[in-house]
Amino acid sequence: MLNIGCHLAISNGFEAIGKQALEIGANTFQFFTRNPRGGSARKIEQTDVDALKLIMRENGFSQILAHAPYTMNLCSAKPETREFALNTLKDDLQRMEYLPDNLYNFHPGSHTGQGVENGTEQIISALNEAMFPEMHTTVLLETMAGKGTEIGGKFEELSAIIDGVENKDKIGVCLDTCHVFDAGYDIVNDLDGVLEKFDRIIGLDRLKAVHLNDSMNYLGCHKDRHQKIGEGAIGIDAFIRIINHPALKNLPFLLETPNEIEGYACEISLLKSMVE
């Protein structure tokens, strides 16, 4: 069975988002923990969370994925930005305990001129301060396109962060198809080779989720511009191989394509039809 879903807005609560996922044929979903551009998080009601848990249990949902806001930069050159990011991370991981055994994804960050090594050390320090042994969430580093001063455009950069994290049983990776393609990993013509490289550098056991996005740009462009499935440079044939690959097919797949809810429903139906 394909574990497929998309990004949904949490504004109406957890039960509502679970019902919306069912309406579009999804059995997983992604949501922002708070406004993606920053700000406070909505109050969590236990009854609302319990209603979502029931929906997930009765309908065979796979793990769901919470996404940190884009403004959470743990390796900014500005101390106040790093402090804001650390406080957000700490709060998010505590709030995730309402939904145990799920996933929390974030962009590693941009070192803003400090260099990859210094930025990596700051990310590691923040993770070690925010993560705790008894937590029930797996934190995922997202593969990035490598634009500007982004960290995470190379598998080696993600590996270096993981190596420094103390709670290694709670750290993993979310592979974004648009990002890795734009970063220069040829998942169109050499998916096996890319996954073998991932396994050698990071370990496929660390791969916990996949963002399914086509790309508006060419291989290695370092742009990060998502496109609808089959309408970009990655193409439909590559997505057939991706969702059916033995190393990937049991993971949760989350769409972040430029769509409204009706478009996501169509893409979910399309992807389900591609399962071999």
Score class of each variant (00 low, 15 high):
residue 1 M to N: 14
residue 2 L to T: 11
residue 3 N to W: 05
residue 5 G to I: 14
residue 8 L to R: 12
residue 9 A to N: 14
residue 10 I to K: 15
residue 14 F to L: 08
residue 14 F to S: 10
residue 19 K to T: 10
residue 19 K to Q: 11
residue 21 A to Q: 15
residue 23 E to W: 13
residue 24 I to N: 10
residue 29 F to G: 08
residue 30 Q to S: 07
residue 35 N to T: 04
residue 42 R to K: 09
residue 43 K to H: 11
residue 43 K to V: 09
residue 45 E to W: 07
residue 45 E to R: 12
residue 51 A to H: 06
residue 53 K to W: 02
residue 55 I to Y: 14
residue 56 M to Q: 13
residue 58 E to G: 09
residue 59 N to R: 04
residue 64 I to S: 11
residue 64 I to N: 14
residue 69 P to M: 06
residue 73 N to L: 03
residue 75 C to I: 01
residue 84 F to D: 15
residue 85 A to G: 07
residue 86 L to E: 11
residue 86 L to P: 05
residue 90 K to R: 07
residue 92 D to A: 13
residue 98 Y to Q: 03
residue 104 Y to T: 01
residue 108 P to R: 05
residue 110 S to W: 05
residue 111 H to Y: 02
residue 113 G to H: 03
residue 114 Q to G: 10
residue 116 V to C: 09
residue 117 E to H: 06
residue 117 E to P: 04
residue 118 N to Y: 05
residue 119 G to Y: 15
residue 120 T to V: 07
residue 122 Q to K: 11
residue 123 I to L: 00
residue 125 S to D: 03
residue 130 A to G: 02
residue 132 F to L: 07
residue 132 F to G: 05
residue 133 P to E: 07
residue 134 E to V: 08
residue 134 E to S: 08
residue 142 E to L: 10
residue 143 T to H: 08
residue 145 A to S: 14
residue 145 A to K: 13
residue 146 G to E: 03
residue 147 K to C: 10
residue 148 G to P: 06
residue 154 K to T: 02
residue 154 K to G: 05
residue 156 E to A: 12
residue 159 S to Y: 05
residue 161 I to M: 02
residue 164 G to I: 01
residue 164 G to Q: 03
residue 166 E to W: 00
residue 166 E to L: 03
residue 169 D to Y: 00
residue 170 K to V: 00
residue 170 K to N: 03
residue 173 V to M: 04
residue 173 V to D: 02
residue 176 D to R: 03
residue 179 H to R: 06
residue 180 V to G: 07
residue 180 V to A: 08
residue 182 D to S: 14
residue 183 A to R: 13
residue 183 A to Y: 08
residue 185 Y to T: 03
residue 187 I to A: 09
residue 189 N to S: 07
residue 194 V to I: 12
residue 199 D to M: 00
residue 202 I to K: 00
residue 204 L to Y: 00
residue 205 D to V: 01
residue 206 R to H: 05
residue 207 L to G: 00
residue 208 K to F: 00
residue 209 A to Q: 05
residue 212 L to E: 14
residue 218 Y to N: 10
residue 220 G to Q: 06
residue 221 C to I: 09
residue 222 H to F: 06
residue 222 H to E: 08
residue 222 H to N: 06
residue 223 K to F: 08
residue 224 D to S: 05
residue 224 D to A: 05
residue 224 D to Y: 09
residue 225 R to Q: 13
residue 225 R to M: 14
residue 226 H to I: 15
residue 228 K to W: 08
residue 229 I to K: 04
residue 231 E to R: 07
residue 231 E to Y: 14
residue 233 A to E: 06
residue 234 I to P: 06
residue 240 I to M: 08
residue 241 R to S: 12
residue 241 R to V: 11
residue 246 P to M: 00
residue 247 A to E: 12
residue 252 P to Y: 02
residue 254 L to H: 05
residue 256 E to D: 13
residue 261 I to M: 13
residue 265 A to Y: 13
residue 267 E to W: 00
residue 269 S to T: 05
residue 270 L to V: 04
residue 270 L to D: 08
residue 272 K to I: 04
residue 276 E to G: 13
